[in-house]
Design a protein around this nucleic acid. Structure first.
Lengths: 335, 335
DNA sequence: GAGTTAAATGAAAGCGCTTACAGAATGCGC
DNA sequence: GCGCATTCTGTAAGCGCTTTCATTTAACTC
């Protein structure tokens, strides 16, 4: 069944049907009603391909992330898709796994599907690998469709960013630990994304400001894995290095710290304070429950999709929005 | 730039270019190379809409789930998308939130995008709400494209199912608890999906077989939430009802059981054994770590996408595959 | 080299829609 | 009733591709 059948049923031309379909004003009310009735009666659905060919758009948005099974990303993907679908945009999801090269490939692939916009979740902005620092593929993509970055920053005409102030959040958290009298704070992080970098510098800045010397082993880049975190702390412990607090760029790493403390009979939070990041469900699973920084996935996604929908409907949107992450205090920090 | 430009550059007709694009055999090698060179040089990408119009397919598969932020679903979505993309299929993701009505709506929406197949993750097969028991929309969809169910079962010509033997897994786990001498086993579950039902009957069957009377309060349907589980157990505890084991249909609920035990100084596993389901990362976060049933998301997804790709390429595939879930013993059960 | 067959190519007709343009209908003032 | 402006509607030309069918070319065979 196609537009022609509808036009026959309604006794009009296909042009008129098309006009009704696209909300074109110049259709007489009586005609419009007749056509709408025909559409309903036949259960007609326009062919997206033909429509796409004509309009060069398919009400579809590409979402690129590296690992949608990561709890944080999964939440983000859920909200993004959900908010977009409220406005009748579909989402094409691409997960690159963890090969950064894939971003270039997938970007190309997704653009070839003629999406109306592309949303990148921030994790892919790899900074420390020189050859990957090249974000030109995103800049190129921005020439074709508007680009939206979740927790990533890139300047460009058609690029819109929504980020958390990770630096601030970690800085504040570190300051709290320092105020609590901690002087041997281990910072565990994983990944080398922009957001990771900001968190890290938030930590080191706080230490510098407080005049606390920062031992090199106390900031550690490792895999995003409970046991990796745990065993790193153990290695420090066995060397006899004092540890009185742990900050982590991910809740998983903080969970590792809890396990480390448990195993060695270290009391939390008296002897060891721990702060995680993301305030994911993991924070509520440990005993004691984890103090963690909440970066408001839902709000971030809402802000981003709002911008996206505005841009797509021709309105202006801020090129950069910075939201504040908030620490949720639970049992791994003192009151 | 379009196919015509390529044909000009290569000095052939657009028909020939199209043949090269579609791997049609009857193109001379020399011509093929010339065309391929032209394509590469121009960086030509075929227009998916035009292509879709002609072929009535866009190498895209719809994935429908109710909550992609659920850890298990998120993993499934990741693997599905990943495996499909290996074969150049894109994934359109639709999450319905938790309104079962949405499945009908989204199914329609996704079909209107002319996807080549639809994958449902099982959770939506609501059984206990009579009006929702009606899966006719899926049967209808199966007339248009092949349908794949992850952890759902529905018979139909164009419907393919991959499930875990949830009944067996829970049955075995319950038997283990009984063998350990447990007689007051609480079964916590959430959701009324097919898979939930199977788990539940696995539990009750085991009890029946062992001749253990099953108090009605000992099987409880509640939200998929740590604290809901915890407080339900507390309510039983306060009533003075004995509890010596907890089985849960989700790890979150099992985490609640661990918290319950902790708070009341109940020793795990001596006084209380706990078994979760999904073997998610949560199982490794608690102290003691959770014994949980692993349903091999990756394998399930691989099996399903294999079937899907076979069907789409015209081959046969099994209408139903049953995989076995395996209990991973950790610290909340006795050796 | 003529005759036969198979392989390679091109011309052109769609696929189902949008939209520019032209034509028909309507309304209004006089 | 006529002329003009305005509002509707239809015709037809694309959009960029696939594919059928006819044609050309090449490859054999005797």
């Amino acid at each position: 069944m196609n537009i022609y059948d509808v036009s026959q049923k309604a006794g009009v031309s296909i042009a008129t049907v098309s006009r009704v379909l696209n909300g074109n004003r110049s259709v007489a009310d009586s005609t419009r009603k007749r056509v709408e009735a025909a559409i309903k009666e036949l259960g007609y659905e326009p062919n997206v391909f033909a429509r796409g060919l004509g309009l060069n758009t398919m009400q579809t948005i590409g979402i690129l992330c590296n690992d949608s099974s990561d709890i944080y990303i999964a939440n983000a993907v859920y909200y993004l898709q959900h908010f977009l679908s409220e406005h009748h945009y579909d989402s094409i999801l691409c997960c690159t796994g963890n090969n950064p090269d894939d971003f270039r490939k997938y970007t190309k692939m997704i653009l070839s599907k003629r999406v109306d916009a592309v949303i990148y979740t921030g994790s892919q902005f790899i900074l420390n690998q020189p050859e990957e620092h090249d974000n030109s593929y995103i800049l190129n993509a921005s020439k074709e469709v508007p680009i939206f970055l979740l927790n990533g920053i890139l300047e460009g005409e058609n690029i819109y960013c929504v980020v958390n102030d990770d630096h601030l959040a970690v800085h504040d958290a570190a300051m709290k630990l320092i105020k609590d009298g901690r002087r041997h704070i281990v910072y565990l992080y994983s990944g080398t994304t922009l957001s990771s970098q900001n968190k890290l510098s938030g930590f080191t800045d706080a230490l510098n400001e407080a005049g606390i010397p920062n031992r090199i082993e106390y900031t550690h880049l490792g895999p995003k894995d409970i046991y990796a975190a745990k065993s790193y702390l153990e290695s420090l412990y066995k060397k006899g290095l004092p540890i009185d607090a742990v900050m982590a760029s991910e809740d998983t790493l903080a969970v590792g710290a809890v396990k480390f403390a448990e195993e060695h009979g270290i009391r939390i939070p008296e002897e060891l304070e721990i702060i995680g990041y993301n305030n994911s469900i993991l924070a509520e699973c440990t005993q004691p429950e984890l103090t963690s920084i909440d970066n408001h996935v839902e709000e971030v996604c809402r802000t981003l999709t709002d911008s996206c929908l505005k841009v797509l409907s021709g309105e202006d949107a801020p090129q950069k929005v910075v939201l504040t992450a908030v620490r949720i205090d639970r049992d791994t920090t003192v009151n």
